[in-house]
Nucleic acid binder design. Structure first.
Lengths: 190, 190
DNA sequence: TTGTTATTAGCACTTGGTACTAATATCAGT
DNA sequence: ACTGATATTAGTACCAAGTGCTAATAACAA
């Protein structure tokens, strides 16, 4: 045993999480064990084979295709959307999103999630943020799962404007609120 | 020939574009031809095999994920700073900062530049954005050089608050304005 | 030394193909 | 109707990256 089995499996999980496109053979070389050992490890950790992993990555981004905005342009993962009404997204705060000094999430990440959700909820090819008024209610930290809800609260057909209210919570507690004034090209049913 | 070859190949392209996860066998059944014919068609149209298609979808969404996350690096370069008074930063808008659909910069990048400059201008170990009111005045596009200026316009020692006004311009034209209410731990000369 | 856990080896089989050859079918023009 | 070109089908060997299974070792611990 090069190291312990546990240690290897821990690293294996990490490696695959980082790069799902790696084959068992590459992993075997990397960890200096046989391909069979890698396979046993994957089974114990219930990590699917390469093709399944790739398929998962692909179908995840494919299923959630939203008319208004390709999913990859949204910060966080949209879990529910009802165009022109409401939308919900989840964003897991990682180490790289916080200030090293105090571990508090940088504001622009929360803003990015809220803003991209406000864009996504608009049922239009072109939606732009014109104005927004936001408040950071409580600090957010690494490890927190931020659940953000966008609700369309008003619409002015003449001015092509839509008002969206966005609220982010962590464990049920509000951490961020914002009001977004969005511009859209098309009016109702055009 | 059920229909013409051309017609079938046209539909084939469409079908695969719509759902890249379809196998040759499924296609053969759908078009009532043999699997070999489907393969010949794919070759003539240079459509890769199922696994390659899936891999393409997966890696595309994977690259984008990585691209949209490191906002830390897009906050611009600070070129001048006078702590607790003013600060100036430059940010060059690249292709990856704009919506593919219309080429306009995503709001959160401009916000990120403004917000991080507001944080930087505060002469304190800990500065957090509490509230902000922002307006996207004009669309910004790839290739634009955004010059952002932050000016400290007020300070409330009791409440540990500092107000910062941020203005971004492209070629002298204002594209973004924002007012940031910042929280700081320390008061004056503590 | 014995028992347990860990690792490696080997084989048959699977999917969704590629690459290639060869046999038919279909149609168009003369 | 005959010929030649194009289209379609069939069949084979082979590949990658696995699964599922059995069996042989190796390493370690009491």
């Amino acid at each position: 045993m090069r190291r312990t089995k546990k240690e290897r499996q821990r690293l294996l999980s990490e490696t695959i999480a980082e790069n799902p496109f790696v084959t068992d053979e590459q992993l075997a070389t990397q960890f200096q064990v046989s391909v069979q050992t890698i396979r046993l490890d994957r089974m114990e950790l219930s990590i699917p084979e390469l093709r399944e992993r790739i398929k998962d990555v692909a179908s995840k981004s494919y299923e959630n295709e939203v008319k208004s905005l390709p999913i990859d342009e949204v910060i966080g993962e949209i879990v529910d959307i009802e165009l022109d009404h409401r939308a919900l997204s989840i964003f897991d705060v990682q180490e790289e999103h916080v200030f090293q000094r105090n571990g508090i999430a940088r504001g622009h990440h929360l803003f990015a999630q809220a803003n991209s959700l406000a864009v996504a909820v608009i049922d239009d090819e072109l939606a732009l943020t014109v104005h927004s008024n936001i408040t950071f209610v409580k600090p957010v930290r690494a490890g927190n799962r931020v659940i953000t809800k966008a609700i369309v609260i008003g619409r002015d057909e003449q001015k092509h404007r839509t008002k969206v209210e966005v609220t982010s919570t962590v464990n049920g507690e509000t951490v961020f609120v914002g009001e977004f004034d969005m511009y859209r090209t098309k009016g109702k049913g055009e």
